[in-house]
């Protein structure tokens, strides 16, 4: 417990951590201020007009779908009267759409919390993932490089205990910080929506979905933190983690992706970590691969999409993080600290 307290104090005192927290607060403040400045409370007439436009948009979608079905069934001539109608009418079936037009879509200059909460949360999660990775890497990297770990080991000559305490303290701190930041962040935009915009349809399902994204985002933040910590431990330096990240992005996400496309590798997105990050965060991810439609009995309406669900993505992310962390502990246990 004493070691945890000491590590907490060291972590909180790190300039880099303080700088990242300030940056987080700054980004938060800028986003909130610009949102507040660019939004206003809609008047009754604006709301009525928006609702009417939304109703018309939904009706228009329904009409287009009915026309498409009628043409498909031969009840109407194939000419579509100037509007585009796809061969596969399910593409414009209102029932199958992710979402239907709502009044908020027709209220320019009005911030809608229900509409914007998810993308805002994604932005925050992206920042916190970066925060966790960099803080995790610098926390152990700087300590290894400066001799801080050696100092500590002279006091507590139990390497695995010391490293595990450092990682545990780091993960706990990042989790608490991420939780507080995200709750404050969402609460602020909820207040903006209530007072200077539109709250929108905040149903139970909305909160459940937002909570799920939030939870998955926090898991991702912790995984990124552990990965940064593990790579910096393996490389003895913060820059090892930064270099590994840059090398991965350039060599694999850009270079290997290009090569896989050139050699027509099937479902190459499955080999990219970003695909798994996206699938985990969103619950699933869809990717296009024209090879899917090249088979003999795929059918005329093959669209060439395949889906990556959250569970295999989580397993991949956990496997990589767990592997790197285990390697870091194994190496640190035997390493000469000079």
């Amino acid at each position: 417990m004493n070691l945890v307290r000491a590590e907490l104090e060291r972590l909180a005192a790190r300039r880099f951590v303080q700088l990242m927290v300030v940056l987080l607060a700054f980004a938060f403040a800028v986003t909130a201020a610009t949102t507040l400045a660019g939004s206003h409370k809609p008047s009754a007439s604006e709301l009525n007009s928006a609702r009417q436009q939304a109703t018309e948009a939904r009706q228009s979608m329904e009409t287009a779908f009915q026309e498409c079905v009628a043409r498909r069934d031969g009840a109407q001539p194939t000419e579509d009267g100037g509007s585009f109608l796809p061969d596969d009418c399910s593409q414009i079936d209102p029932v199958l759409q992710d979402r239907l037009p709502i009044a908020a879509d027709f209220l320019p200059g009005v911030f809608s919390f229900a509409q914007q909460a998810r993308p805002l949360l994604f932005f925050l999660i992206a920042f916190l993932v970066l925060f966790g990775f960099l803080v995790g890497a610098s926390y152990i990297g700087a300590d290894l490089n400066s001799g801080g770990v050696v100092n500590l080991l002279l006091w507590r000559p139990r390497r695995l205990t010391v490293l595990a305490t450092k990682l545990g303290t780091l993960l706990g701190t990042v989790l608490v910080l991420a939780l507080l930041a995200s709750v404050a962040y969402l609460a602020t935009f909820w207040v903006i929506g209530q007072t200077a915009g539109l709250a929108g349809q905040l149903s139970g399902e909305f909160w459940r979905e937002l909570g799920a994204v939030h939870g998955r985002g926090l898991v991702l933040v912790l995984l990124a933190t552990a990965v940064g910590f593990a790579i910096a431990t393996l490389g003895r330096h913060t820059s090892a983690a930064l270099g590994a990240l840059a090398a991965y992005v350039v060599v694999w996400e850009l270079g290997a992706r290009l090569v896989l496309e050139i050699v027509d590798a099937p479902q190459s997105d499955l080999f990219m970590l970003t695909s798994h990050v996206g699938a985990w965060l969103n619950g699933e991810a869809r990717f296009y691969d024209e090879q899917i439609c090249r088979g003999g009995d795929i059918g005329f309406n093959c669209q060439g999409f395949y889906t990556l669900s959250w569970l295999p993505s989580l397993l991949v992310l956990l496997g990589i993080t767990g592997g790197l962390t285990a390697a870091a502990f194994a190496v640190f246990r035997r390493r000469d600290l000079i």
Binding site: N2, L3, A6, R10, N151, L152, W155, R156
Partner: peptide, 27 residues
């Protein structure tokens, strides 16, 4: 066992007192 090995590096932003307090707490 009290030990120093070569010139130990300390956290520059901490005061001397805080540096020792942290070590005392950890130990």
């Amino acid at each position: 066992v009290g030990a120093i090995v070569e010139s130990p590096q300390f956290f520059g932003n901490f005061t001397g007192y805080r540096t020792l307090r942290l070590l005392a707490r950890a130990g």
